[in-house]
Design a protein around this nucleic acid. Structure first.
Ligand SMILES: Nc1ncnc2c1ncn2[C@@H]1O[C@H](COP(=O)(O)OP(=O)(O)OP(=O)(O)O)[C@@H](O)[C@H]1O
Length: 990
DNA sequence: TCAGCTTTCGTTTTT
DNA sequence: CGAAAGCTGA
């Protein structure tokens, strides 16, 4: 068998081997589109005899390109993958323009205008034109025009009155770019289109063109695809309309249809098997996307088991939300016996700005993370300064870069001087730099005489730039970027400057400078390794421009890479051990496109965040949530703070759950707290990840460090669980809730205050008083447990105690050396005991006839039964007997389109129904919009009384802090939580 | 006129 | 919190 087709299913193979010249692979997330595309590249090379340099493959991000190159290296080997023309549209276009741009009159050594340049230029012209348009808005509209290929003239032609202003700015902006020899992101595509239209011979070698994530291409990119393929007309694209999330950047889903219309011989292959996510995750995501009624129904079939039901968690505040993630990550890590590592977790955000609280919480908890997307390394001011120096050195006509550094570090060149200089340069119609040079040399003068100090400053700047340019001339290899950075930092006494300017964090800023140097070095090394990184086309007489000067070339390329880079490609930062960095990923949803993680958190799913308050198209926001959810393989956590202080001015800051998660969907497809992670749940995770199941011993091992084996630090309604505190704790909560405070004052500590903030039934409230009252008096968990060997009777009968509570309450707990009553024995019970290990394969593959939410196994009673060696089937029977009264219609695990349950189509009967019932009762909270926390009164009891009990072991331990500077150790006071909160709130530590 | 300080405002998503 | 505008002493 052809190794290329290994591990592909029938439909995938069909796509890979299709003889169709125009091929569209349309498929839902996780169906192996990228895998298929990669295989097709390999297939075309090996079976059609195409040369790698004759194949163009466009991915959406640089990261995706890298990954594909790596995958191909494994698939075909022989280094031929390095000759592929593979990259983002922008980087491929840049390569063509570097080689052939002169054919369309492009000046050599052009730079790329990043969004800062763009913004600066637009701001300047708006000021000059005295326009009242927001720079941001102007920028967006100009880019939109460009992305549709509309020149200023074209816009002007049919512009309405108010558009006229934009046209002026647009024109001005274009000429400013030209003056600085800059191309912006849109220009890269546009000009490359121009080039290939006028000189198709540049791509006359191209045999095949492949595009990933085609649903996110814009019109220009679509045209580019056609131009690339103009010789051989062999195009393969993969995409998924449901995952189109770049409409704000003028991406058009319609390109799919457009292509079908354009090429009547288009072959369309649909894939429907999902290999990534558990069926329960898929179900919920599917229901989200199906709310879009304009969308045609699509087949989507899970190949994995039902797995663990996704979580929709409510928490008091964003800060609590972040802490909750910390706890859940630690809980998952500790309870899965080494199955999950830090790099298996991802936090996906609608906006990068949401990351701050998460980052601080992770930092305090010692959870290693990396932030991708959002604020970029190359955007940091200190880095930016050096880069701008390099840009000026590389091309002195780059006036914007020059303006950015002309007075950094301070050279006594202020607003007035700058006004004189730019005004003079404008008048003389020469570039700013030339004008400055002339002024310094006394060949020209400004209207008003410059101050002496300013002139001196200009003089020293000129000397520096000239010296740097000389340095560059002398450096004739790829090390130029690094040499220059070093030279400039040296000459500027940059480190001293940083110390002076940023006394608070000069060290981290200097570290960034070091990192920049490192980046420059890496680029150099990279170049030497892969000389043929830039493709060469021996084609026609289109001779590439003489490489001019290797040093200059390396410099422009470095700067271009910086402008096009999303994140730094640091191979192995923080050495600190030979381990490859194990880190949680924090990312924007956009940047997570195409990726997958075993465990995914999507915080802040409230109205205003997603859909974003400024979003133009709600459907796109829904797709965004869909994309985020479908990144998860085994565990999916959505969450929201019920109060967001910064939101809504005079309001109480309460949030509303995103409309994309209507109550019915939440009730049916989500649980409200993190799942119990007992043996079977863990096995199911392992199976979905296709990893070996951890041993029970390993699973026990981590437990000692956990404050709780359950997600019970907050109530399912998202309030502080008062049983975790004594009465004074309100102020220890990171974001004190004013309401809560007030009620504290009225009712005094230690009482049942917290009920006032949640609409519990009386029935429940009587239960609450027990633990709450006790908590202020008892001295140790064990005391309490021995004093109350059994939970309150009604609770046992009416509610379902969390699994580990049942365990913790067993008398055997008293033998524990732990004060929380968690013994090895009880832990073992929790997991069902070693004896049970082999009893059932558990939810495994699609062959498994009964899709049951795995959390069923986590039901409290269950673990008790398990300890008694009752087979799961039986225990579920027992569970069903419990007096459950779901207040809502019990749902079939329905699935309108009939695909969600296909993982086990054979017997959908009563079983699933029962499981869903359990879901409901397990989390008896209002599934409705998260409002003020008023939950519906429900007949069934809550687990409150038990949470209190479980609290007792919870409170005794606090997490072990790994990071040395983060203090803490194992804490055994009854105030574990409380102390921790204090610390967490208080920040600094030893 | 410059530099440094305080104040204010607003905060999507990305190549 | 970071950028940008405003204010004030040198
Ligand atoms: N035939 C298969 N058998 C087993 N696993 C597969 C198969 N095809 C794909 N996978 C796995 O499914 C996961 C998703 O694959 P891939 O990333 O290619 O999907 P995708 O359709 O591109 O997803 P997205 O649309 O989210 O980008 C990967 O882990 C991949 O290894």
């Amino acid at each position: 068998m052809d190794p290329i087709l290994d591990g592909l299913n029938h439909a995938q193979r069909e796509a890979v081997t299709s003889s169709g010249s125009i091929l569209q692979v349309l498929a839902p997330p996780g169906s192996g589109k990228t895998k298929t595309l990669t295989a097709r590249v390999a297939y075309l090379l090996s079976h059609h005899g195409y040369q790698p340099q004759d194949v163009i493959c466009c991915t959406f991000t640089i990261k995706a390109s890298r990954e594909m190159r790596e995958r191909l290296a494994k698939l075909i080997g022989g280094k031929s993958e390095s000759r592929l023309i593979l990259g983002t549209f922008h980087s491929i276009c840049r390569r063509y323009l570097v080689k052939y741009g002169y054919l369309i009159g492009l000046r050599r050594g052009f730079g790329i205008a990043d969004s800062d340049d763009t913004r600066a230029i637009i701001r300047r012209t708006i000021k000059r034109l005295k326009s009242s348009i927001e720079p941001k808005a102007a920028q967006g509209r100009i880019s939109r025009h460009k992305a549709h290929g509309r020149s200023p003239e074209a816009v002007a032609a049919k512009a309405k009155a108010e558009e006229q202003e934009i046209v002026d700015i647009y024109r001005d902006y274009e000429s400013a770019l030209a003056a600085s020899n800059l191309l912006d992101y849109d220009d890269l595509l546009l000009r490359c289109g121009d080039l290939l239209r006028e000189h198709p011979q540049c791509v006359s070698n191209v045999q095949a063109v492949l595009v990933d994530e085609f649903q996110d291409t814009n019109i220009i990119q679509y045209e580019l695809v056609n131009l690339f393929a103009s010789k051989n007309r062999r195009i393969t694209i993969v995409g998924d309309p449901d995952q189109s999330i770049y409409g704000f950047r003028s991406a058009e889903i319609a390109n799919l249809k457009r292509m079908q219309r354009h090429y009547s011989n288009t072959t369309v292959v649909l894939l429907s098997d999902n290999y990534r996510s558990s069926a329960s995750i898929l179900n919920s995501a599917q229901e989200v996307i199906e709310q879009d009624t304009s969308r045609p129904a699509k087949a989507l079939q899970a190949t994995h088991s039902f797995g663990t039901l996704p979580v929709l968690r409510k928490l008091p505040t964003p800060g609590a939300e972040a802490k909750w993630m910390v706890l859940e990550i630690k809980r998952c890590e500790a309870m899965t016996g080494g199955l999950l590592r830090m790099s298996d977790f991802a936090v996906l955000l609608r906006s990068a700005s949401l990351s701050t609280q998460i980052e601080t919480a992770f930092g305090r908890a010692g959870i290693p993370y990396k932030m991708v997307g959002g604020r970029k390394f190359f955007d940091r001011t200190e880095v930016k300064i050096l880069l701008n120096y390099m840009r000026v050195v590389s091309h002195t006509g780059h006036s914007d870069a020059l303006l950015n550094i002309v007075n950094v570090p301070p050279r006594r060149i202020g607003d007035e001087t700058i006004k004189q200089l730019t005004g003079g340069a404008d008048k003389a119609k020469v570039p700013l730099w030339d004008f400055i040079k002339d002024v310094v040399r006394g060949r020209r003068s400004t209207e008003k005489k410059l101050q002496k100090a300013a002139e001196q400053g200009l003089c020293s700047l000129m000397k520096l730039i000239e010296a740097s340019r000389q340095k560059l001339q002398d450096c004739e290899d790829a090390s130029a970027p690094r040499v220059l950075i070093e030279f400039i930092t040296e000459r500027l006494s940059f480190q001293e400057y940083l110390i002076r300017a940023y006394p608070l964090d000069e060290d981290s800023r200097w570290a960034n400078v070091k990192e920049l140097m490192h980046q420059a070095t890496e680029v150099a090394a990279f170049e030497e390794e892969e000389v043929d990184k830039e493709m060469d086309l021996p084609e026609i007489e289109g001779v590439e421009q003489q490489q001019a000067h290797a040093g200059e070339e390396a410099l422009t390329r470095f700067l271009a890479n910086v402008a096009l880079a999303t994140e730094i490609t640091t191979k192995d930062e923080e050495q600190e051990g030979d381990q490859p960095k194990e880190k949680v990923t924090i990312s924007t949803i956009h940047a997570a496109k195409g990726l997958e993680w075993p465990v995914v958190f999507v915080p802040a799913v409230y109205n205003g965040s997603i859909p974003h308050s400024r979003a133009e198209v709600v459907e796109e926001e829904r797709r965004l949530l869909y994309v985020a959810m479908t990144r998860a393989q085994a565990l999916l956590y959505l969450s929201l703070p019920i109060r967001q202080p910064r939101l809504g001015e005079g309001e109480d800051g309460s949030t509303t759950l995103t409309p994309f998660l209507p109550p019915k969907l939440v009730t049916n497809r989500f649980r409200l707290t993190g799942p119990p992670l007992h043996e079977k749940a863990v096995y199911s995770i392992a199976d979905i990840l296709r990893r070996p199941r951890p041993s029970l011993e390993d699973m026990y091992r981590g437990l000692a460090l956990l404050p709780s084996t359950l997600d019970d630090r907050w109530t399912p309604e998202g309030e502080e669980d008062r049983t975790k505190f004594d009465g004074t704790s309100a102020r220890d909560v990171d974001e004190p809730n004013p309401k809560r405070r007030r009620s504290d004052m009225h009712q005094g500590p230690g009482s049942t205050t917290y009920m006032s903030s949640a609409g519990y039934t009386m029935n429940n409230s009587t239960q609450f008083t027990v633990p709450t009252t006790v908590s202020s008096g008892f001295t140790s968990a064990r005391d309490y447990i021995t004093a109350n060997p059994e939970p309150p009777v009604e609770s046992t009968s009416k509610s379902k105690p969390p699994a580990d509570v049942a365990v913790a309450n067993k008398p055997s707990a008293s033998s524990s050396t732990r004060k929380d009553g968690l013994t090895q024995a009880s832990i073992s019970n929790f997991f069902g005991g070693p004896g049970l290990q082999k009893r059932e394969p558990v939810i495994a593959s699609r062959a498994q006839p009964q899709p049951q939410p795995s959390r069923r196994y986590g039901q409290p009673a269950q673990s008790q039964y398990l300890t008694q060696s009752v087979p799961p089937a039986l225990s579920s029977h027992r569970v069903q007997q419990r007096p459950l009264q779901p207040s809502r219609p019990t749902l079939e695990p329905t699935n309108p389109n009939g695909y969600t349950w296909m993982a086990a189509p054979s017997r959908p009967g009563p079983k699933p129904r029962m499981s869903v019932t359990q879901e409901r009762t397990g989390n008896n909270v209002s599934a409705g919009t998260a409002g003020t926390g008023a939950s519906e009164a429900k007949p069934e009891t809550s687990t409150r009384g038990f949470q209190a009990v479980s609290t007792f072991h919870t409170t005794t331990m606090s997490m072990v802090q790994q990071a040395p500077r983060r203090t803490l150790g194992i804490r055994r006071s009854m105030n574990g939580w409380q102390d921790r909160m204090k610390r967490d709130g208080g920040g600094h530590v030893s």
